[in-house]
Design a protein around this nucleic acid. Structure first.
Length: 108
DNA sequence: CATGTGACACTAA
DNA sequence: TTTAGTGCCACAT
């Protein structure tokens, strides 16, 4: 089991309509310091279709410009397509769409 | 083996 | 609040 494999595994567990931060994915993959590795993992994705890479955003909900294609953010389009809303700052509304691995139904 | 780079995160100013 | 610096892990050279 390689680090990348764990990362892909975690990212693949992100439910539709939700997003997770690099740090969060890294922490769930095993180490909270793999944030950069997560980004690299998605950067060198062998098969973009088998992991919802677009559901992974920065801690502030911002999307890295490096993921842009011909000037437009494919992530934004995909996330919007899944029902994710964006703020005026161009960030994902983490308040509503931040993935919470904990299934505390009825808490808070 | 050492150095540089990178879809990040945290801390200090 | 924004910018700059540092740490971290994996990969390329």
């Amino acid at each position: 089991m390689t680090t990348f494999q764990k990362i892909y595994e975690v990212v693949g567990q992100i439910p539709e309509g939700f997003v997770a931060t690099y740090g969060q994915v890294a922490a769930m993959a095993g180490n909270p310091r793999w944030a950069r590795v997560v980004g690299y993992a998605l950067h060198v994705l062998p098969d973009p279709a088998f992991v919802p890479w677009h559901r992974v955003v920065a801690k502030d909900g911002r999307i890295s410009t490096a993921s842009d294609i011909n000037g437009e953010s494919l992530q934004e389009a995909l996330l919007r397509s899944e029902g994710v809303t964006f703020t005026l700052d161009g960030r994902v509304d983490l308040q509503k769409h931040l993935w919470k691995p904990v299934d505390r139904t009825g808490f808070v």
